[in-house]
Nucleic acid binder design. Structure first.
Lengths: 191, 191
DNA sequence: AAAGGCACTTAACCTAGATTAAGAAAATTA
DNA sequence: TAATTTTCTTAATCTAGGTTAAGTGCCTTT
């Protein structure tokens, strides 16, 4: 079965016609690793759902330091919510880290779908709620935990990503430098 | 006009009957400063909308250090989203900082309202979206800005709160100790 | 009005994590 | 396959921000 429909069906029930309508408003594309799907400074027009492969969103500070906001692998959505909602230029990049099959949903079509299938409003509300809770927790972790603790939590929560993501990007996600991350990791391994 | 209805009308249009129905499902209460509305470990059953006064949510680390997740003054909602959504015990406290008039909306009634007035689903989706965007930005700020920079940003964004909130709590919100905050503040004033 | 407790300040000292730099290993590309 | 670029490691040094502690002033509560 289709991954994105499976995903939706966890929260709301769509009829077969609604499922077809939904899919007809999306496009599925393949992208090579390193492809930039969204540049900082652009207005974000789409949400991306990952069928396979791996993506990340990040910004660049003072044209030097990258900070990873999120990773997205199979079954996850990714976008620049600020820019998508406000339709103003954002400061996030969205990049493919591993060759990926992506379902693309434009903002226009999303709004059409909200009209046609009001239940979808509920689905995206729930998605957004879960995302909000996750960001609140991550913020509190950054306020209250040491780098070690954040790393351990990341490991237990995102075991799948650790194999795939270059560690400098995990470092960035956790809020430490690659050098410190390396030091920390070898310290933890020695135990 | 009623503040909460005014608030809602910025995003969706309710008929007079719908407005009445909405209000009939809420309760308005007065609370004294220092009142705890929600304790860590409890399951959160309600959202709070602030008509007047000031609230905060925070957690306590290792039974010692408080970390402020959010403030809420007139016109803002506050709750423990994790606990409210999952109906599991949360780890946030919600506390009144200044005598407050609060509109209380129970989860049950919120769900009844979603049935009766499906448009409300849109309203709460938008609220949640805006909140998500704000937390993403705050997280990125914590990853990429120095304490000074976060403080300046806080000042320009929440000028109203600076007068009202004890500075040790602003320090906690920014992720620094009260001692360091005091040092930082006097350094900035000397300029 | 006194007493006790908070909130804030200041200062000395400490440490988690940053910076710089240089080499080794792995992955891309030609 | 070699050449080139990235990623990762290690180590020395540095600093933003933490900790501890002592003192001041301001609310509460009685």
């Amino acid at each position: 079965m289709n991954l994105i429909l499976e995903n939706i069906s966890k929260h709301i029930n769509l009829t077969l016609q609604e499922q077809e309508l939904f899919l007809s408003k999306t496009e599925t594309h393949h992208f090579k690793a390193k492809t930039i799907l969204l540049n900082a400074g652009e207005v974000c027009k789409t949400s991306y759902f990952v069928n396979s492969g791996l993506l990340r969103s990040f910004n660049i500070n003072d044209n030097i330091v990258e900070h990873v906001l999120s990773f997205a692998c199979s079954g996850w959505w990714i976008s620049d919510m600020y820019s998508l909602l406000s339709q103003k230029p954002g400061n996030l990049f969205i990049q493919v880290l591993e060759d990926a099959e992506i379902v693309v949903l434009s903002k226009e079509n999303q709004e059409i779908l909200f009209q046609e299938i009001p239940k979808l409003e509920r689905f995206f509300r729930i998605l957004t709620e879960n995302s909000l809770v996750a960001y609140q927790e991550r913020l509190m972790d950054n306020l209250s935990l040491s780098a070690d603790e954040r790393f351990e939590k990341f490991c237990s929560k995102h075991h799948d990503l650790i194999q795939k993501v270059p560690q400098k990007q995990i470092a960035s996600y956790l809020g430490v430098t690659p050098e410190f991350f390396s030091k920390m990791k070898s310290k933890l391994l020695r135990k």
